[in-house]
Design a protein around this nucleic acid. Structure first.
Lengths: 343, 343
DNA sequence: GTTAGCACTCTGTATCGTTGAGTGCTAATC
DNA sequence: GATTAGCACTCAACGATACAGAGTGCTAAC
């Protein structure tokens, strides 16, 4: 059941105004600021219809109306235009990314900061999620740290370094370790990360001399390297939320900040509806009680067929969706550029 | 100019009560709950004196009194007893540390979470601060990541891994890189971290063949390895602050959270008064406008003569100093145990 | 179908006592 | 001389009341 053209326009006006002001909007405001050819009484009738249809709520009899979740859904699906990023925003984002930053562990933080600064919402950046299937071993090395402890380094073909501290026989000399890592490296090179434990197992059964060390390595690989999530998550700008009137209630604000401090809850918020470029979750669609008045906009960015990561914005349902989408798009593309093997 | 015994007792009672209740305490409360042998009138006289001496403030004429910064100073310096940690706290902390966690990057996070959960304040954990003077190179390795890019790995004698992504001549084969890293490793091993650039410089001038790579390595070392702070910083439990009435004003809360999101501001808060076991900074002593109503308690923990890290608690000046000190002490000692090379 | 007009509703704010906790001072008591 | 009872005074917090302003819904006219 579709709305007629005019109802769309009015609904859009209401949403736009509410996003801007955060206070219920009345018929007179619409009539004066957005639909000057219509009187407030007409708007009033239309608004009454829109409320009937579930697009508007009224906090109380004489307070104007606010958009419902259903209205936001309609807004992002049909009403909202994809706008280009404002030049000022571009400028600001550039400034963040300007410093050279090749190092992978930094990128996420800088990107998150850029996002939260540009949008004034809270941002999340997750690098390299799921899809580890095809990560392969490029290099492996044992380095003595002190008598009895060795550091196992493993470099993947994505350029990530994984490490595990091992406790080994104190009698092993530095050269022993070196020899062992040469052999291991040769055997494991180009092996898929998830296959490493299996290959190591086979090695152990074949090769009797270095059993202890190998077991230690296997243990380290199992507990620290394969299991350890490759995904790094950075949340930035939580404090931004406190500027919005929807969180002038400290209780509410605290509950939300607590969610943002819990890694797996944030991860759950970012869960992505398949390969979509953008996912927008509104209010209850976020699936958590604590975020029932929040919206989450996420974008995944790819390189070829690999998913490189996810960027997301968390804010009140009354969110500047257009700007947020534009900023996410820009940052996503920038990240892909940065990750691109140079030249 | 010292206070007499009774004034100390009364001041202590006032501080204890205020820490508990967060509301100005009146003479009658003290007379009934703490000093039953004295009438409220007597207490009133004493309180008047204490205010005169700068230990108490009155928000307004008829509101009871609250401890001044000077009072807290006196409290932590002289009045406060070192209490043992409550069994319940110990239990809770143990639960946090129980899972095995050798891996250095995890320890900080777990410790921070443990601290903020146990104290209900905000905690900061910094690993391996300052004092890098004596960190030495244990191992160095170049690993090819893709044509034209190589990963420079550097392991220090503290077991930390530092990495830098280098762009190198596409013609360099994997073997070339291996040879180069062998030579570099031999030359730089045991070299102090800060001397690395100098030694590299000397190598470059001596050795003509590998100039390009060496320059690249030097650049990488300079920008990513020596400069990059070795210190990892984790803040946990920012949301806890919002439970305190002192931050029921959202504006204030936001300003403080903003500080906690700014790495170097937090670092500045933790700056430590020399080798003291505990440093307590109260209100203005924190040195920042935004934290003029906060206190910061920090402890550094050592292994032998090395500083391993700093743990800290940030909260309102009305802080449970005794508990905080006890918890920090416990966590600090636990960390040392964990870091200890096993056996 | 649109609009002017009007009665009605409801929040937010300002005003004004009132209450209660607390102080400071004085005079009596130990 | 220190302690305390007693009392006048102060001030924030609370509740009631009134009032203004924004907004709606409905009806009747255009």
């Amino acid at each position: 059941m579709d709305l007629d053209e005019r109802k769309y326009r009015i609904l859009q006006a209401i949403i736009d105004d509410y996003i801007l002001t955060a206070s219920p909007v009345g018929s007179r405001t619409i009539s004066r600021k957005y639909e000057q050819s219509l009187s407030s009484a007409t708007i009033r009738n239309e608004m009454s219809d829109l409320e009937e249809l579930g697009y508007l709520d009224s906090p109380h009899t004489s307070a104007g109306r606010i958009p419902s979740h259903k209205a936001y859904r309609l807004y992002v699906d049909r009403l909202m235009r994809r706008v280009p990023l404002a030049p000022a925003d571009i400028e600001q984002l550039r400034a963040h990314f300007d410093r050279r930053m090749r190092q992978a562990n930094n990128v996420a933080q800088l990107a998150a900061r850029a996002l939260s600064d540009a949008t004034h919402y809270t941002s999340v950046v997750v690098t390299r999620p799921a899809q580890e299937a095809d990560i392969r071993v490029r290099h492996l090395q044992l380095v003595e740290v002190s008598a009895g402890t060795a550091l196992l380094l493993l470099v993947t073909d994505t350029g990530a370094v994984k490490e595990a501290l091992l406790y080994v026989d104190r009698d092993l000399s530095r050269d022993d370790l070196y020899q062992i890592s040469r052999i291991l490296s040769a055997r494991l090179e180009n092996c898929r990360l998830e296959d490493v434990p299996r290959v190591l197992g086979r090695l152990i059964s074949e090769w009797h001399e270095g059993q202890d060390v190998l077991n230690s390595v296997l243990e380290g690989v199992r507990t620290h390297i394969v299991k350890e999530p490759t995904t790094e998550m950075v949340v930035s700008g939580s404090a931004n939320l406190l500027s919005f009137p929807e969180y002038s209630d400290v209780e509410k604000a605290r509950d939300l900040l607590l969610v943002l401090e819990t890694k797996d809850k944030v991860m759950r918020l970012l869960e992505n509806g398949g390969g979509m470029a953008f996912t927008i979750r509104i209010g209850p669609e976020t699936g958590m009680q604590e975020t029932k008045d929040c919206s989450v906009v996420t974008a995944t960015y790819h390189m070829g067929s690999d998913t490189l990561g996810t960027v997301g914005i968390i804010g009140p349902t009354r969110m500047q969706y257009q700007q947020v989408v534009a900023v996410l798009d820009y940052v996503g593309r920038t990240l892909v550029q940065i990750m691109q093997p140079s030249e």
